[in-house]
Amino acid sequence: MSLGSKSQSDTAAAQGGPGLVSVAMTVNSKAVSADVDPRTLLVQFLREHLRLTGTHVGCDTSQCGACVVHLDGRAVKSCTTLAASCEGSKVTTIEGLAQGGQLHPMQEAFREHHGLQCGFCTPGMIMAAVDIANRKGPNLDETTIRHELEGNLCRCTGYHNIVAAVKAGAAAMGGARQAAE
């Protein structure tokens, strides 16, 4: 892919800093590649190089989970992962969930249950929620959901509806999977 604006990596190269590193990965089913400054975090790569700004940076200290994406099918904090470490990996961001104009069942559940207030934590919450459903199945109780959401903070403290949304979304994902089989 071509990188439009002057990126952080261009600056580092111009300053004669340590060399750039080539990285190629699949993001939301599209092959992408770039030469990046080794310091580039996965979240920076997604937001600043690919312009996929749905993934948010909240705390930038691996606490809040606003930056959660799926790396090879598992939820990770993209603010604490180097882009260079993702060579050859498959990444899914919030932009990659909806298919053919249809919201993902978890997105639909967050809409239906109003699982958001300001919405800043929502992309990370939804990516975490899909990961929880993938690992724990469609029938989640409230205790499990709250425990599994320990890595995601909502500063509006709107957890009640988020938990309801995750429960409904996981059940809908299970239903969708059954329908597909």
Partner: peptide, 9 residues
């Protein structure tokens, strides 16, 4: 340890 996302890395 940590939270689910931390445990994945």
């Amino acid at each position: 340890i940590g939270d689910p996302h931390v445990r994945h890395r």
